[in-house]
Design a protein around this nucleic acid. Structure first.
Length: 970
RNA sequence: GCCGGUGUGGCGGAACUGGCAGACGCAGCGGAUUCAAAAUCCGCCGCCCCCUAAAGGCUUGCAGGUUCGAUUCCUGUCACCGGCACCA
């Protein structure tokens, strides 16, 4: 250890200054390089590896890995990372094997956009950003097992991303078993049963009579990863598909280029098949209520009926989905989405007005539709028959009916649906009341939605439900529909299948090729990874039809089946093929990274099954079982593998839903052992910042504001008063805090403590640089308590103080309890209180007469270690605890057990109890802790202040809560 | 519009299961130390009334309710934040 450089003065060379803190932190971090030169930090061996301790239970704690941007770490990143680091260090001390990995989510749009702007290849910028992020995270001293690090852009990793996609491609969802199975099983069954299938052109044919292509097309319709058609926002000028929020008034947000909505063949995931299981299994995980609600709503299950309406003029029947089949007598017209096949057929019959409307509506973006909910529409000229009333009702098209939901067609019941009512009013269509709701009269002025009793719903020739309550009426109608063969019970979801293709360069290529006829063939697993070809020009292609950037790599795209690695049994090796040029979206890599960490370097499997089982599968505490379960058992095992997953709530729906879907597919296929990926999920709050606002609500950048006096701010240029408000950190407001600067000013331990001390982990809270000094002073004071600032030697009390010993036990107990609750702010407050209580007065003649003993200091260092590890390790080493791990990493407290709090020290002999009269405190009473209610009551009534306060009034009632308070009612 | 969350001193926040509101930190004020300052140590610090103190009154967004007792439970209401948004 080198002599510490000290800022000011020579007399206190061991004062805990920023420079001293930085020096000792960096010294500890240097000592974490492995002797073998292979890596850095703590290593957690897997079962079967050297140094693995099978007697310890496992704890898998995961951070949402970051997307490394050129801007470096934001102060929001270390918030969650510090929290998990505290938990992991604590669990380590409590005797767990702790898996705490880190990696990089590195494919995706932002890197590519940046590359297009700067002309530097995304691989170069991304790797640079990763190096910077890694440097910053190490500087915080996080206890990651860096031997498990990887990035989603590593071919060794995305090889398996592609492999998992192929697993989905080679599978189908068996609705009877409600799970995925290999598509080979479906094929075998179809062959065995010689099933009759629908073939192109609408005919039906036996399996044995089908051509190879017909069979293939049939199977393709079942795959979990399938080629489907979706309407997308295509911007020809930008050469890419845009997300809905990137389209404004039919033009691109960037550049204002025209955007057209066009159907595009894309790779999709059949996530809707899993809707029910994704919904049901939310009950098995310990997730924030809010997140479960969001996912539930996102999936949007609704029960109702599918009803087929006959259409005049030789048309196919029109199928609708409704949640209110009981209102069928009130269906006075029908509406189909502008994209509905019936509309194009109606246009073919020669309806110019309809053609015009449909063309207009189809090009209207979702954003526009939301901006104006004014009802627009056009009659198709076709008529349907209401099967309940027998009435002839018109079929309209309108863009308030969405092609993507249900069947893209509705029966309109204007009397009881607000949207239908508005439409009927706008186009003068019939409105018939068929539900009577208690207390809500139907006036014809507005729709009455809700449950009630059926009225005007009788037809002797069909069905009569008059008088039935809504629930019963629904049942009756559905039963009748089924009997008539024109409808059935149906469950519908808001969740859509997942569009998985992007017309982008910086993503995982699909391991799939096409022959000249457009049939697709998978690349065999053995030929993976299919690496992304290096492209000099990865900018988008301007075109009317989608041309992904990969299409420019002609030598890569145009190949042969053998060269591409297609199984010769599927396609002859010399067949010319073209590779898929779309790439996977940014979500792909994050859908399974938590699995890869279990055995990050396994070259033969996506995860080694033994490691996966060890880290992901465990018994529930209440099951009474220990050890690693042989396989998942719903009665005794946790549903989810990761014991704690911490990340922002912005990923509550999409990432967490997509990962669950992939996990369930892998579970069904027997590749993973748990039905859920994340057993417990926690969202850290957003770290905001102060910003300034003029009277007109416009914002002023922080560097243009001066504080004239305490809490009063003016805009420097104008002298106008501005209000201090809380806002997100942003470059434009100049209120972004750079972690590197804060560490330079105070050290990483202070940074960690500050973020944990700001408030509850889940709450959003404002960064206030002024407050950091509070926790810094705490560390300084703790340092001074333990170390002689002149010599650097330990400065301990000669003998323990009984009160401080008691307080230390309480602090140990509270800190442990608070860590388990993720309540770090109160844990830190407790440690501050301990240090304050133990602090010696300045200039104490004999310092060994005050403070904590060596033994007490060591216990304090241990509970501080999870929060401020460098500080605590330094102190631990000074106190004689030192060692070296198998990797050669110098350690102090890493292998130490969490100190025990003596339960006897947590209770007092005597407690102070307030005495209230009419709920107001009038006296305080010292009573023995074990005193019973009657004794306390007697003591209270005898107290002089109480007697005075009662002033002779009769006592009506005395409430005594032992150990808490006494309340006297007069 | 619908769903969810949050409102506590000048500021960040604390408070077990309905039981002493304001732990801890910041800022502020006073003192000790110092030639002086920084640093350190000690103390004060919700608001009102008041010369001061005592005593008293008020106080967890607002208005009610339940209760011996409410930051905590209930009803209504306002503000802010987040999500969804023509989903039939």
């Amino acid at each position: 250890m080198s002599a510490a450089p000290i800022a000011e003065g020579n007399e206190l060379p061991h004062r805990y200054t920023a420079a001293y803190a930085n020096a000792l932190e960096e010294r500890w971090q240097q000592s974490m390089r492995w002797n073998d030169g292979a890596g850095y930090g703590y290593r957690q061996p897997n079962p079967g590896e050297a140094g693995f301790d099978p007697t310890r239970p496992k704890y898998y704690c995961l951070d949402m890995f970051p997307y490394p941007s050129g801007a470096g770490l934001h102060v929001g990143h270390p918030e969650g990372y510090t929290a998990t680091d505290i938990i992991c260090r604590y669990k380590r001390m409590k005797g767990f094997n702790v898996l705490h990995p880190m990696g990089w989510d590195a494919f995706g749009l932002p890197a590519e956009q940046y590359a297009i702007q700067t002309g530097v290849h995304p691989e170069v910028t991304t790797k640079k950003a990763i190096d910077n992020f890694r440097r910053q995270l190490r500087r915080f001293g996080f206890m990651y097992d860096w031997s498990r690090e990887f990035a989603t852009i590593d071919p060794d990793y995305y090889r398996w991303t592609q492999w998992i996609w192929l697993q989905a491609y080679e599978s189908w969802f068996d609705p009877a078993a409600k799970r995925a199975r290999p598509i080979r099983e479906l094929e075998e069954r179809l062959a065995r049963e010689d099933a009759e299938i629908a073939v192109e052109g609408g005919a039906r044919r036996r399996w044995s009579a089908c051509s190879k292509r017909e069979r293939q097309l049939h199977l393709d319709g079942f795959r979990l990863a399938y080629l489907g058609t979706q309407t997308v926002n295509w911007c020809p000028k930008l050469g890419t598909v845009l997300a809905n929020e990137e389209v404004i008034d039919g033009r691109s947000e960037r550049g204002g280029h025209p955007v057209v909505r066009m159907p595009l063949k894309q790779w999709m995931f059949r996530i809707t098949a899993y809707a029910d299981r994704l919904l049901e299994d939310l009950a098995l995980v310990d997730w924030p209520e809010m997140t479960r609600t969001l996912q539930t709503e996102w999936i949007g299950r609704s029960e109702g009926a599918e009803i087929r309406f006959a259409v005049e003029g030789g048309e196919e029947p029109l199928t609708v989905f409704t949640t209110r089949p009981d209102t069928i007598f009130g269906a006075t017209y029908m509406v189909v989405a502008p994209e509905h096949a019936l509309v194009s057929r109606a246009i073919e019959r020669g309806n110019a007005e309809l053609a015009k409307y449909a063309a207009w509506a189809k090009n209207r973006s979702d954003i526009d539709r939301q901006a104006s909910k004014e009802k627009t529409g056009c009659a198709t000229g076709l008529f349907a028959v209401n099967p309940a009333t027998g009435a002839r009702i018109p079929v309209w098209t309108a863009d308030y009916v969405l092609m993507g939901y249900g069947t893209g067609a509705i029966m309109a019941v204007p009397a009881h649906d607000e949207r239908d009512f508005e439409f009927a009013k706008a186009f003068s269509l019939d409105i018939v009341q068929v539900v009577e709701i208690d207390g809500v009269p139907f006036t014809g002025e507005a729709a009455t939605a809700g449950e009630g009793r059926a009225v005007n719903s009788a037809n002797a020739a069909a069905i009569s439900i008059d008088g039935l309550a809504t629930a019963a009426a629904k049942k009756a109608v559905i039963a009748w529909l089924e009997k008539q063969g024109i409808g059935a019970l149906r469950v519908n979801y808001r969740l859509r299948d997942w569009l998985f293709s992007r017309q982008r360069y910086w993503g995982e290529p699909f391991p799939i090729v096409y022959d000249a006829d457009g049939n697709h063939y998978p690349v065999s697993a053995a030929s993976l990874p299919l690496t992304l070809p290096p492209l000099a020009d990865y900018s988008p292609v301007e075109s009317d039809t989608p041309q992904p950037p990969l299409a420019k790599a002609r030598e890569w795209t145009h190949t042969t089946a053998a060269a591409a690695g297609v199984d010769a049994a599927l396609l002859a090796g010399d067949t010319p093929v073209v590779r898929e040029t779309n790439t996977m979206p940014g979500w792909a890599g994050s859908c399974w990274y938590y699995l890869r960490y279990c055995s990050a370097k396994d070259a033969s499997r996506f995860v080694s099954s033994e490691a996966e089982r060890y880290w992901m599968l465990s018994h529930r505490a209440k099951s009474g079982k220990t050890g690693v379960p042989a396989q998942f058992d719903a009665a005794t095992c946790h549903a989810g593998g990761v014991d704690l997953y911490v990340g922002g709530s912005e990923h509550a729906v999409l990432h967490c839903l997509y990962a669950r879907f992939w996990h369930k597919v892998l579970f069904d296929l027997g590749h993973v052992s748990t039905p859920e990926p994340f057993g417990k999920l926690f969202h850290q709050g957003l770290i905001t910042s102060y910003a300034f606002q003029r009277a007109d609500k416009s914002l002023v950048p922080t560097d243009q504001v001066s504080e004239v006096k305490e809490g009063e701010f003016v805009e420097t240029a104008t002298g106008q008063k501005v209000a201090q408000i809380v806002a997100k950190m942003s470059k434009s407001l100049k209120n972004v805090v750079n972690p590197d600067d804060v560490i330079a000013d105070y050290g990483a331990d202070t940074f960690r403590l500050y973020e944990m001390y700001m408030g509850p982990l889940e709450a959003s809270k404002p960064w206030n640089t002024r407050d950091i000094v509070g926790v810094f002073r705490f560390l300084q004071r703790a340092w001074r308590l333990a170390v002689d600032e002149r010599t650097g030697e330990v400065l301990a009390a000669a003998a323990p103080d009984a009160k401080l010993e008691k307080l230390l036990h309480r602090t140990i107990h509270k800190v442990g309890e608070d860590i388990e609750k993720l309540s770090f702010n109160t844990a830190i407050a407790a440690m501050i209180e301990l240090v304050n209580a133990a602090t010696r007065p300045t200039g104490m003649a004999d310092p060994t007469q005050g403070g904590l003993t060596r033994d007490q200091l060591l216990r304090f260092a241990k509970i501080l270690w999870p929060f401020a590890p460098h500080f605590a390790d330094e102190l631990g080493a000074k106190l004689g605890v030192a060692g070296v791990t198998a990797e050669g990493v110098r350690i102090s407290l890493y292998d130490q057990p969490w100190p025990e709090a003596d339960p006897a020290m947590l209770v007092d002999d005597e407690v102070e109890m307030p005495v209230q009269i009419q709920g107001k405190i009038k006296a305080r009473l010292m009573v023995p802790a074990k005193a019973d209610a009657a004794a306390v009551e007697a003591l209270a009534l005898a107290h002089a202040d109480v007697v005075a306060a009662i002033a002779g009034r009769p006592v009506k009632k005395v409430v005594v809560v032992p150990g808490r308070m006494v309340n006297i009612v007069v």
